[in-house]
């Protein structure tokens, strides 16, 4: 077991490392291929003639005069051990590990920007995850218990329809109906739950619904097929034969077995969503990780992109890792 955990842990670290290298290289390639001094991608504004002392000073300040591996090591060591960022004038900024660097465009530590965005994304993901888990599993259970019935067909066709609806369509439609036409949600600007829980709820309800819609459909289908399979197992038949009532059998035995794989997939899905709720955050103007990503990609604000990508990779890898371990605990046959 311990060997298994260590093996998985190593795998997770390797994946995160590969992600950091690939992202780093992609954005290092831009200035190289377009013959541009990378300074422009950091400050975006100040034009200096090539070879001028000002440009050299800037290049040096950002460390672009170092060889590539040194730049990468500088970045990596910042994440591992923290670093102190200085421009030689301002009070040096202490950036404790994990330090993702400093965005000179935003005049802010990348870590701070990510920390500001994380609560927004988490609000979105956790809320909609609860919605889709409850909604999807209920629909799936009902369908699975009566395969072929009208309810089942409606549920399954409906879930296919839900999967076919893009958020960038459902989102504006929901906004149009509830914010602008009915006026039920007149102000949907985000407020942190700690400051104004009512406003937080109001701002989150539509994003939750639109995101949960997609996943609920998937979970409904999954639950249904697992339910169908479980209910035909021998031990369920035995339980029924023992005279247990249907409700007890369904809930205590059927659902429990059917839900085990769902829970593991749930873990991975939640992990995957960290940093990738780009469209939902865009449609609803939520300044979470997804929004941060795309806005920094458009500004080619390299430190932020690297930071978010690595955070997203870590979330995903951790989710996979936890699920793997859980699986191994549940089913001891799983080995390396």
């Amino acid at each position: 077991m311990i060997r298994f955990i260590i093996y998985r842990l190593l795998g997770a670290i390797v994946v995160i490392w590969i992600v950091s290298v690939v992202t780093f290289l992609i954005f290092q390639a831009v200035p190289l291929l377009s013959h541009t001094n990378p300074v422009y991608f950091y400050t975006g504004k100040v034009p200096f003639k090539p070879g001028s002392p000002q440009l050299k000073a800037l290049t040096h300040r950002f460390g672009f005069d170092l060889p590539l591996y040194a730049q990468y090591w500088h970045y990596l060591s910042g994440i591992l051990f923290g670093q102190t960022i200085t421009d030689g004038v301002s009070v040096p900024i202490k950036c404790p590990a994990p330090c993702f660097g400093y965005s000179f465009r935003q005049n802010e530590l990348v870590g701070t920007l990510i920390a500001q965005a994380v609560p927004v994304s988490l609000s979105l993901i956790v809320g909609s995850a609860i919605l889709w888990l409850v909604g999807g599993v209920s629909v799936g259970t009902i369908s699975g218990l009566r395969p072929g019935s009208a309810i089942d067909r409606i549920g399954m066709t409906g879930s296919l329809a839900a999967v076919s609806l893009p958020i960038f369509f459902t989102g504006p439609v929901l906004l149009l109906i509830f914010e602008y036409t009915l006026g039920w949600l007149p102000d949907v600007s985000y407020a942190p739950i700690t400051q104004n829980p009512v406003q937080w709820l109001r701002s989150m309800i539509l994003p939750w619904v639109s995101l949960a819609f997609l996943f609920a459909a998937l979970y409904a289908r999954l639950t249904r097929s697992n339910m169908l399979e479980t209910m035909s197992e021998d031990y369920i038949r035995t339980a029924r034969a023992k005279g247990l009532d249907r409700r007890t059998v369904v809930i205590k035995h059927g659902l429990r077995a059917a839900l085990t794989p769902i829970v593991t997939i749930f873990g991975i899905d939640v992990g995957t969503l960290v940093g990738t709720t780009v469209i939902t955050e865009n449609v609803f103007n939520l300044r979470g990780l997804g929004f941060l990503t795309i806005s920094s990609i458009q500004q080619q604000d390299l430190p932020i992109i690297l930071g978010v990508t690595i955070v997203a990779a870590v979330a995903l890898v951790v989710a996979n890792f936890v699920v793997d371990i859980l699986y191994a605990v549940v089913d001891p046959r799983v080995t390396v």
């Binding site: 994946v15 992609i26 390639a29 080619q300 992109i305 990508t309 990779a313 995903l316 890898v317």
Partner: peptide
């Protein structure tokens, strides 16, 4: 395949498109 499946592919795709489009 394992690595690719546990990549934040969406972020990388967006980044890649922007970069190539830029060049």
């Amino acid at each position: 395949m394992d690595v690719l499946l546990s990549f934040p592919t969406l972020l990388l795709s967006i980044a890649l498109i922007t970069v190539v489009g830029y060049i």
